[in-house]
Design a protein around this nucleic acid. Structure first.
Lengths: 141, 141
DNA sequence: TAAATTGTAATGTCAATAGTTACAATTAAA
DNA sequence: TTTAATTGTAACTATTGACATTACAATTTA
């Protein structure tokens, strides 16, 4: 099991728009060639990012631009925008036996700990903004 | 995307063996009726837990028993035993374009942050032992 | 009007999860 | 030593989600 690459594709897309956007018109085609996926994948990604208010996309004439400062977009925001994980990260077996003392209580016992683990992961994503990545990019170049 | 229910099934299984094991012979059939899945699912779970050294399973005569104190088994250990996540939690798009300055560097930029997030989740799982759950169970009863 | 591009539906492929049937091998008890 | 219960495991199916791809109407600008 892995969290879908829609997430890393979306981060890549936003960074590409930021970094290459001054020089090029950022069409789905161009972004797709940087990410190395089908342009339709990028168009769908852009729709998600647009719905979240992170980009604007021009139909017809083409090109995506940032609609929000990168410092106000965290990795968590992107993760939410592309809907990597619907609700709970951990899949709980559906119908533990309510007539068994263990089955009856397993949810009460586990739910909090699983939520804690998910929250820890998500907090970690919240601590990084795309502006941080842009700075790191500059220092590599 | 969700982390497979093999994980919660395995935790349920271990707790059931601990709690019901003094009173009943813990066959795959009995555990399956508590978890409410097919007994074969439990047999496969037990094989994973056995490989990790957490249980012993008697072929023929039947029944599973704990092979390690619950205080020495964390949620993380169970998570590893049933192989929920093979290596990386986040799926990275495979072949970013090395001829693009963004594609060339996206791994260097993101890998550490993704690993941090995964680690945060796993550390959280490490902080809970099955003995903790058993204590919580007692306090509910 | 022509050219480029987006938005989106439809379809296909692949892998993983989960469920199920089946049965040989094992063990303990009658 | 037979019988009954159970495990261990292979084989198969169904379902779902990810990702890829084709196609084309709608949009925009030149």
């Amino acid at each position: 099991m892995k969290i879908t690459s829609r997430f890393t594709v979306a981060v890549h897309t936003l960074l590409a728009i930021h970094i290459l956007g001054q020089q090029y018109k950022m069409t789905s085609e161009l972004i797709a060639s940087s990410v190395n996926v089908n342009p339709v994948i990028i168009r769908r990604t852009l729709q998600s990012l647009k719905a979240a208010g992170f980009v604007e996309v021009k139909a017809g004439s083409g090109g995506a631009t940032l609609a929000k400062p990168l410092g106000e977009i965290t990795l968590y925001d992107v993760y939410r925008a592309v809907d990597c994980v619907e609700g709970e990260l951990f899949h709980f077996h559906e119908n533990p036996n309510p007539d068994c003392p263990v089955g009856k209580n397993i949810h009460a016992l586990l739910d909090k700990h699983l939520a804690d683990a998910q929250l820890a992961m998500e907090q970690s994503l919240r601590s990084v903004t795309l502006a941080d990545l842009a700075v790191e990019y500059s220092s590599i170049q």
